[in-house]
Structure formats: C-alpha cells, structure tokens
C-alpha cells in the first residue's frame, strides 16, 4: 500500500476512535451500521470485484448471522458475541458450500439470478417456519456479552456509543486485515485470473470451480459476521433483512463507493447511510434520488465515488508539486 494511503487510513482510524466523544449521539449510533455493513461488504466484494461474480442474494448471509445471534441470545440464552460469531462462520460456510456447489457452475447473469433465487428461498423459509423463527413477526436479539463482559446494566445508548462501538470497530479492523491478506495472496491473484479469463486460467492449471467455491465460502462467512454485528443494533431480526432489496442495497453501496478499490465499498456504505438518513426525512421519494445517483455514477464515473476522490487527490497533489517546482 502506498504511503499516502496508509497515512490516510490512520487518520480515518484516529477519527473513528474519537468520534463517540465528539459526534452527536444518533450519528454515532448510525456508525455501528457502517461497521457492520463494511464487514459484510468485504465478503461481498471478494466475490464481485476479485472473482467477477455478482451475487444478488448476499443478504441471505446477513440473515444467517442475524438469526444465529437471535437464536443464541434469546432462545438458548447464550449471550457471548464470540460464540455468535464463531457459530455464524460455521453455518455461513455450510450454507455457502451447499448453495455454492450449484451457483458456481454458472456465471454472470445466471449466477446473479441463482443467488437471488436462493436469497428469496431463505426469505420464504423464514416466513413459513414461523413456529421456529417467528415468521413475519421475527425474533428478538438480546444484548450480547462482549469479551465475556455483561453490559446490561448500562444505558442502551451508552452501550452503543461505548463498548459495542469499539468492539465493532475492532471486528472491522481484524476483518479488513484478513481480507487484505487474502486478496493479496497467491489465492487472490488466481481469483482475479479466473475473473479476467476463465478459459486461460484453466489452461494454466487453475481449477475454476474449486476457486470460485472457496471464494463463495469465504465471502459468505464475512457477510455472515456482518449480520451478527448488525443484529444487536436493532435488537430484532425479521425476514425483511434477507429480502432481495436488501441484497440490492449491498450492490448499490459497492457500486456507488467503487468496487475496484478495496475500501470503495466502505465509502459506499457511508454515503448510503448518510444520504438515506438526510434525504428520507425530507422527501418520501428518496429512493428516486438514490436511483438517479446510481445512474450518474455508472454513466459518469463507473469506478465509483472513490475514483472521483482519488483522481481529485492526485490532481491536487500534482498542482501542489507543480507549484513547488515553479517556486
């Protein structure tokens, strides 16, 4: 990573560390969603940008994570966040293997349609098995213990601005490091070769189905963990979380932020959450604005907002250096 990139990241990290102390309470609360979705999108984008597979059903894995948290905390009274995360990784992996074995045989539009279908299948499953999952009424998610510590005596908003905030940030940092290593590993390179030219990759000895399946599994696990982080924020899980439009939100965030940059989807999450919060209070047609924004990005800057920002930054730096040279 370039030096300027590292400096920038450290600045953002420093800001995030002090944000609960300087930011308004509600905006700090919204940041929790940003952490959770960022982890989820790390998984989604491994599949999209690095493997070239667009999943329109990834909210399924958010559901796996969220409902795992719901079952463990409110049904089985196991409140430990770490248990929820580990069980989710396991379950997401199993689900990803089962679905992936079918889906990775197909690419492009067929892959997208299949993942959408599986996502909606899971939605139907949650609605129908109402004796188990509460159906449309959903399930409660109790406040988890973090690192074994019980914070239930704490005021809810203090919990969200304090322990849960830093815990989520920690999970995001760990997840980012793990995913960074994966995409910069030999495995990551092989994935991109399959993305770019599967036939050629096969001729170089890369078993494309095997790699796609493994990418799908890793992707599902990361998104599942995102779901576990998301669930306690609402305190409730319902089938709406796995409806295909929620998968669409994830695609939107990734595209708007910029999928070809590792941090693009995270920027997309910030934009999505902030815009929706600001716009939906004033205009009931906020979805129209979002559609127009997406169209503008696709037409004017397909690399997303992060590309616009990096180009701007490069331009400014060049001007500064030109100015220095002139003087």
């Amino acid at each position: 990573m370039k030096k300027t990139g590292i400096v920038f990241l450290l600045l953002i990290l420093a800001f995030l560390l002090v944000w609960p102390f300087i930011g308004p309470e509600y905006q700090v609360y919204l940041t929790l969603s940003f952490f959770a979705y960022s982890v989820a999108l790390l998984g989604f984008n491994l599949l999209f940008n690095y493997t070239g597979l667009l999943s329109f059903g990834h909210a399924l894995f958010i559901g796996v994570g969220g409902y795992t948290a719901a079952f463990l905390t409110s049904r089985f009274h196991i409140p430990y966040m770490e248990v929820s995360i580990l069980v989710t990784i396991l379950l997401s992996g199993v689900v990803a293997i089962l679905i992936g074995l079918i889906c990775v045989r197909y690419i492009k539009i067929y892959f997208a349609m299949l993942t959408l279908a599986f996502g909606m299948l899971f939605h139907s499953f949650l609605m129908k098995t109402y004796h188990l999952t509460g159906g449309d009424e959903g399930m409660s998610v109790e406040q988890p213990y973090l690192l074994g510590m019980d914070f239930s005596s704490m005021d809810q908003m203090a919990f969200f601005s304090g322990p849960y905030y830093y815990y989520s940030l920690g999970v995001l940092i760990l997840a980012s490091i793990a995913m960074w290593r994966i995409v910069h590993s030999p495995f990551g390179l092989c994935l991109t070769s399959i993305r770019d030219n599967p036939d050629k990759a096969e001729y170089l000895g890369i078993g494309i189905r095997k790699y796609r399946l493994l990418a799908f599994i890793i992707s599902g696990c990361f998104t599942g963990v995102g779901g576990v982080l998301l669930a306690p924020i609402t305190g409730h899980m319902d089938p709406g979380m796995v409806f295909w439009t929620h998968s669409g939100d994830m695609v939107f965030m990734t595209l708007v932020g910029g999928f070809s940059n590792f941090f693009g989807p995270m920027l997309g999450t910030v934009i999505f959450i902030t815009l929706r919060d600001v716009i939906s209070s004033y205009i009931e047609y906020w979805r129209l604005i979002f559609g127009a924004l997406l169209a503008a990005i696709v037409i004017l800057s397909p690399g997303g907002v992060i590309e616009v920002l990096t180009n701007l930054f490069t331009l400014i730096r060049r001007k500064i250096m030109a100015g220095e040279n002139a003087s």
């Binding site: 495995f187 092989c190 070769s193 770019d196 001729y203 890369i206």
Partner: peptide
C-alpha cells in the same frame, strides 16, 4: 488470451503459482 486487468508480471506469476501448487495459500 490474456488477463486484461492483470499486469504482465502477475500474468506470468499465475502460471508459476499454479505450477508450484501455491494457489490455495490464502
């Protein structure tokens, strides 16, 4: 047949990684 988005050296590396069976190193 090339990998359009990959650099030249990375294209060659794919073959070497495959040959050395390092493809599954995550």
């Amino acid at each position: 047949h090339i990998f359009p988005e990959l650099s030249l050296i990375n294209t060659i590396k794919v073959a070497i990684i495959s040959r050395q069976a390092k493809g599954m190193r995550l």
